[in-house]
Design a protein around this nucleic acid. Structure first.
Lengths: 222, 222
DNA sequence: TCGGTGATGGCACTCAGTACCCCCGATTAT
DNA sequence: ATAATCGGGGGTACTGAGTGCCATCACCGA
C-alpha cells in the first residue's frame, strides 16, 4: 500500500511535476482513499523520502551497538555509509528523486530536515563519546556536520552523473578527508605528552611514502 | 508595515503559539489586509525570520569584496560573525524566536533552509578560492559545514541561556577550532630543499596528518 | 453467528497560499 | 483643473494540503 502510493506518486511527479500533482491525483491513480495517503505519509513531501525513517532507525541501532573503544569518527562515517547504501541500492529511484528535489524548493527544504535528523544522530553519538573533553559537544557538532557534508558531496556528484561510477569509493575518499582530520589516526591535540613543539622528519629522496608517513606518525603521536 | 506585521505576529505567537495563530489573526491585529501579509512574506513561517534576507545579502557582499589573497577560512568565519551580530543585536527577539523554533517543527525546518542558504554562500566562496586544489570543492563544502556548525553551536548555547554572557567571545572560541584545523595558520608545516637528496619536513605538533603528508608529497614527488 | 478490532474510505472542515479585480491617492500630461 | 496613469494596498473567491469524525468492511476469536 505504501509502495503503491510511492509508485503512483513518482509516476505522476516525473510526468507533470511535483506541484502540478495533487494528492487526489496520487490516490486516484493508486486506487486508494485520500485519507489513507495521510495515514502513511504525514505530508505530500514525505512520500518522496519513504525509506529514510527506517534508515534513521538503522543508523541509531548501529551507533548504539558500536564499540565504545573504537574511533568515534570512523564509527559515524560507517553510519553515514548506511545512508549511502540506501541510495545506491536503488540508483534509478535515487536519481529520479534527485532530479525532483533539485528543482522543487519545497522538497529541498524537506530533504534538509531529513538530513538534519541524520546529523543530529551522528552528533549525539559523538557527544557521548567526547563527553570527557572540554570542547566535546562543539567537536561533536563540527565533526557530524563535516561527515554529512563530505558524504553528501560524493553522493550528489554521483546523483548528478545519473548514477554512474562507484559511489562507495567516492564516499570513502571524501570521508577519508574527515577521518584524516578529526579521527584517532590524525595527529592533533597530543602536544601535552611531549615538551618539544616541533617534529623534524628526515627522509632520503625516493623514500616510499608509507615509510615517511610511518615515521611522521611515530614521531607525532608517541 | 513589515515591522507592524512582525510585531503583531510575535505577540500572538508568544501568547498562543505558532500553530494556534492564523494569518487572519495577525493581519487583523496589525490592522492590514490579509493580502498584504503575503506581499511582504512568502509564507507564515517567513515572518519569524524577517531579517535573514538582508543578512544573506550582506554576507554575499562581504565575501565578494574579500581579499583574494587572505585566508579564505578566516573570511568565511568573518561572514558567519555577520549573522551572529544580527542575532546579538536583538537579544530579546532572538531568544523569543529560539523558544519558538525549538518546539514548532515547521519553524525548525524553515530555519534549516535559511541556514542552508548561508552555508551554500560560504561554500561558494570557498569553492572559488580552492578552485586550484584537486579536492577544492569537497574541502569547501566540509569547511562551510564546519563553520556553520561551530557558529550555531555557540549561538544556540547563548540562546538557551536566555541571552546572557558574551556571544561574540563564545563564537570566536568555537570558530577558532575550525580555523586551527582548516585555516592557513594550520599550514605551519612546510617542506624544504627541493634540490637536496634529503627532505626536511617541519611540522608543529598538532598539525593534522593529512597536511603533513601533503607537504611531504609535494617535496618528494615534484 | 456475534461482538470486537484494526485498517480503510468518505465527508466536511480549517487554513495557507494565490489569482483576479477593485479602490484610492499621488503624480503627470494636456 | 481635469483626465490619464500607476503603484501600493484591500477584498473576494478559489485551490489544495492536512485533520477530525464517523461509517464501513475484513478478519478473528468465542
Amino acid at each position: 500500500m505504501r509502495d503503491a502510493l510511492v509508485e503512483a506518486a513518482f509516476e505522476l511527479f516525473s510526468e507533470r511535476g511535483f506541484e502540478q500533482t495533487t494528492v487526489d491525483d496520487i490516490v486516484s491513480l493508486a486506487g486508494v482513499g485520500r485519507r489513507s495517503f495521510f495515514r502513511y505519509f504525514p505530508s505530500k513531501e514525505a512520500v518522496v523520502f519513504p525509506d529514510h525513517d527506517g534508515c534513521l532507525a538503522d543508523m541509531t541501532a548501529l551507533l548504539e551497538q558500536a564499540d565504545p573503544t573504537g574511533d568515534p569518527v570512523a564509527q559515524v562515517c560507517d553510519a553515514a555509509r548506511l545512508v549511502l547504501r540506501m541510495y545506491a541500492g536503488n540508483p534509478a529511484f535515487s536519481v529520479g528523486r534527485y532530479q525532483l528535489t533539485k528543482k522543487v524548493p519545497n522538497l529541498r527544504t524537506h530533504e534538509l530536515s531529513v538530513v538534519w535528523r541524520y546529523e543530529r544522530t551522528l552528533a549525539s553519538h559523538l557527544r557521548t563519546r567526547y563527553a570527557a573533553r572540554a570542547d566535546g559537544a562543539l567537536r561533536a557538532d563540527v565533526i557530524a556536520a563535516a561527515v554529512v557534508a563530505a558524504h553528501n558531496f560524493a553522493l550528489r556528484a554521483w546523483l548528478r552523473s545519473g548514477g554512474e561510477g562507484d559511489v562507495g569509493a567516492a564516499v570513502d575518499e571524501a570521508l577519508q578527508l574527515v577521518i584524516d582530520t578529526w579521527g584517532d589516526g590524525a595527529a592533533e591535540g597530543r602536544a601535552e605528552s611531549q615538551d618539544e613543539e616541533v617534529v623534524v622528519m628526515v627522509a632520503r629522496r625516493g623514500t616510499p611514502m608509507w615509510r615517511v608517513v610511518q615515521g611522521v606518525e611515530a614521531a607525532l603521536e608517541p
